[in-house]
């Protein structure tokens, strides 16, 4: 079981898997009453977006939390490992549905939060450069509550990038945004996270089709993962093409169907 204390010595396992794919094996989450999933595995390429879809309550957010080494439910028994039969011990960059900006830190200090949390010296130049990349250099000295929802999401993206962890985990990061802001952020996130390994949980099939290099659908009890072919165009894909509507219909059908 990945515990918070074991996370401190986390960097090494990354190096091992940086040469190529990262395998997550034998993920199991069970409560006293029922088992959500058992023996789940997934292969994450060295870079590119893996989108995880599934109905509410299927355990996809829990799976993401387990990969991140975060506590799940108190009565859950869980285990997850890498291909070598060892527990996962990854350094990850985490981006949740809320932007989670700390209101008492200025925007620039929110970007470099990870350094403060590890007791390191903040690299202000890098934080500033990232803030400029998301187009918010002018807000560096402001407090987060003076920003709009879209701006706050972009700061959260800059903070995620600051972590420079090779595995980026996102739990519906753009769900709270309006449609147009979301499309902007898709393009921005795709550009800035190029070369990183991203796993994104989403409820929105179109979002998955727009962004993913790999789509995994989680369904059934206990749940299993099925992969779905993604459209061949490079991401982020235009949602208004016939190919996308076809795929959208297939994906919806897949989500609806009860797994055998």
């Amino acid at each position: 079981m990945p515990s918070s204390s074991s996370r401190q010595t986390s960097n090494n396992t990354l190096q091992d898997c940086d040469d190529g794919v990262l395998r997550i094996e034998a993920a199991r989450l069970a409560f006293t009453e029922h088992c959500l999933f058992d023996g789940l595995s997934m292969t994450l390429p060295a870079h590119g977006w893996t989108c995880l879809l599934g109905r509410s309550g299927c355990g996809k957010s829990s799976l993401l939390r387990m990969i991140a080494g975060l506590p799940v439910a108190p009565d859950a028994s869980l285990s997850v490992g890498n291909g070598a039969g060892q527990p996962l011990n990854l350094r990850v960059a985490w981006m949740a549905q809320q932007d989670l900006l700390l209101p008492w830190r200025r925007v620039i200090d929110n970007v470099s939060l990870g350094a403060a949390m590890r007791g390191e010296r903040a690299d202000r130049e890098r934080a500033m450069a990232l803030l400029e990349q998301v187009g918010l250099g002018h807000t560096a000295r402001r407090y987060p509550q003076t920003l709009s929802g879209g701006e706050r999401s972009r700061v959260a993206l800059a903070r995620t990038l600051y972590e420079s962890a090779p595995l980026v985990l996102m739990d519906e990061p753009f769900a709270a945004l309006d449609a147009l802001t979301r499309l902007d952020l898709h393009a921005l996130a795709h550009r800035l996270l190029a070369g990183r390994r991203v796993v994104m949980v989403t409820h929105d099939p179109l979002e998955a089709l727009r962004m993913a290099n790999q789509i995994l659908v989680m369904r059934g009890t206990p749940a299993r993962l099925d992969s779905l072919d993604v459209p061949s165009q490079p991401a982020p894909r235009d949602p208004a093409t016939p190919a996308m509507s076809n795929n959208h219909a297939r994906l919806l059908a897949m989500l609806d169907e009860v797994a055998a």
């Binding site: 996370r7 990850v92 949740a96 989670l100």
Partner: peptide, 11 residues
Amino acid sequence: GWLDLARTMGA
């Protein structure tokens, strides 16, 4: 969520 974030950052 703030505590989750801090955990993933290795705090």
